[in-house]
Design a protein around this nucleic acid. Structure first.
Lengths: 340, 340
DNA sequence: CTGTTAGCGCCTTCAG
DNA sequence: CTGAAGGCGCTAACAG
């Protein structure tokens, strides 16, 4: 059916070793021979059989990409970075999206380790337990993380701590005293703190900025369901309501917009709002949303490059940890607090 | 290093053939032997080497997923459907996102065909030329398309024609006479019409709905750049401006919101707007956006199931073409046209 | 620069 | 129900 190097060798009147060399170390083959081999390949419409190569080399040139989910613009840009780096090195990507489900993530990791179908794993915002990650470690499969940190594992982090600090400072500078942080819930169970860096970094930066002031940090935890919206509406109706909100993503920030309309508060006059991610529509809404922009593409690219290094075998002794900067994008959703 | 079936066979005191059977046709092995083999596997922490299996079976149990891009909620739900179907059948997915770039898509297809690294290809909203697709066909690699149609190729389509028809009817029923369709541009070059089904279906449904009326169909083509926004602003300032707009996605619809604010028109009083995709924020904006919701998860699931069938070898004679229904989600962005 | 050779790990007939 | 044996396509020594 499909032609093999043997067929090519026969047509080109050379040995299979030479054909293989043309494929992998062309500089070791004389121009004339190379030409003959390439012609034969074209003639036979030859295609390398990767299974054979993988079996022989014991490497698949494939990496697994473990994502928390798709459909977020940040993730998608991150993936583009990963993809570009992988393709430049001729690596393929097998994708798994866990949809923020720890069980699913565990199942995927099990699948990966049980089948040895990849040379390395790139894990973005891991949500499952520590054991799973160590499972990979122990198997000697190179691992790099984005937005998560584990001892001895290379990772590329965005400094959400500093960004949230900046956002909070920005609001403080405008005189806000009652600022609310709208943050994700941390999955329950004995999940290691180190994994959930974003949520904790955010919290940390927020607290740190407020520590030097009289302002009291308020936090509202957001679950999957929509109860938090009713809760927020209730808070916003009270007399000592927050005058500013920092949301952990733009979608949430825009949900706050809707809650405000329901309650009769106007942004930014009655309430300042800061989002995160800088999604496209953030600039279209009324008022345009002040938000945090994150170097997602760069993050993905760096992470993949780091993983490639590890897969190539020349991993640095001390696993690298990158900490990337983001920026606050000022638009019109913040203003001084109203005098009550 | 890693243990093989040979190691397992030795420990379990059986032949490698038996170990292989335990892996693939356990019912052919006696309970006792099976037990012994499984114990040995556990003891040795045995993992199948897929490369060996692939080489032997000449199948990789892997499918390629060719996406136009990530970061759209529709795509992400579609991918979830694909993923669920694939995993249920124990197939892995290799992902490629073309970012609406025909060259990139062609490169990916070349990669796929040149390496034979997948058993089948699932192509979503293809953007490159016909040849590439036939390239796959000719290679005998099973192919299924989403939102694109090619002769002899199975596909799963959403009936955007009908949906746009419905949306137009809805606006007509409210008395609109000057309706504008905001549609994507069709890539230039000798790109086959059959590929760009969504764009054309939309156009078709729109024209069809207006054909029975005196209303004149207007279309504005949206490019990657933002010039169209200035153009739209200009149109909206004219005396015979459109009184309603159908946008080909919610992001665009929300961009229209912003243009309206710039021009001083109010939605829905001065202008009715209908979007497409029902992104999360569509319900948060002011006014909540009337939009088209599409069964993306189901589409992905069906497409993958269809591809699995083909990869299993029992493809139907006549490649299946599914046509899925969507629905119009009524919110508050439409109203009767203002009396001028 | 090129050829010979020996497997990589697995599945699958064919016998028993 | 189980075992023996061959080979899938490729690469990497080792010779020449």
């Amino acid at each position: 059916m499909a032609s093999t190097i043997e067929d090519v060798a026969q047509v080109a009147q050379v040995s299979t070793a030479t054909v293989s060399r043309v494929l992998n170390q062309p500089h070791l083959v004389s121009i004339q021979t190379r030409r003959r081999v390439l012609d034969a390949m074209q003639l036979l419409d030859y295609k390398v059989n990767l299974a054979g190569r993988h079996l022989r080399t014991n490497r698949t040139r494939t990496a697994a990409l473990l994502l928390p989910g798709l459909g977020s613009s940040v993730i998608s840009r991150l993936v583009e970075g990963v993809e570009d780096a992988a393709l430049a090195a001729k690596y393929a990507l097998i994708m798994f999206s866990t949809r923020h489900d720890a069980d699913r993530e565990a199942a995927y990791i099990d699948l990966i380790t049980r089948h040895r179908l990849v040379d390395g794993v790139l894990c973005v915002s891991p949500c499952s337990s520590l054991e799973n990650m160590h499972c990979l470690e122990n198997d000697g499969i190179p691992l790099v993380m984005c937005n998560g940190k584990l001892d001895g594992v290379a990772s590329v982090l965005v400094n959400y701590s500093d960004l949230t600090y900046q956002a909070t400072e920005y609001l403080l500078a405008w005189g806000h005293q009652r600022i609310l942080l709208l943050n994700w819930t941390v999955p329950s169970g004995e999940v290691p703190v180190t994994l959930h860096t974003i949520t904790h970094m955010r919290q940390g930066g927020f607290r740190q900025a407020l520590a030097a002031t009289q302002a009291v940090p308020q936090t509202l935890v957001v679950d999957d369901n929509t109860e938090w919206q009713a809760h927020l509406a209730h808070m916003l109706r009270s007399t000592d309501r927050p005058t500013a909100i920092i949301a952990c993503c733009d979608k949430l920030a825009l949900a706050v917009y809707a809650v405000c309309r329901g309650v009769g508060l106007r942004i930014p006059h009655d309430l300042s709002v800061i989002g995160c991610d800088d999604i496209l529509v953030a600039q279209y809404v009324d008022p345009p949303l002040t938000t945090i922009r994150v170097p997602a593409y760069k993050q993905g690219r760096l992470a993949m490059e780091s993983l490639l290094q590890a897969m190539m075998g020349d991993a640095p002794e001390e696993p690298a940890v990158h900490l990337l900067k983001g920026e606050l994008v000022l638009r019109d959703s913040c203003a001084p607090p109203q005098q009550l």
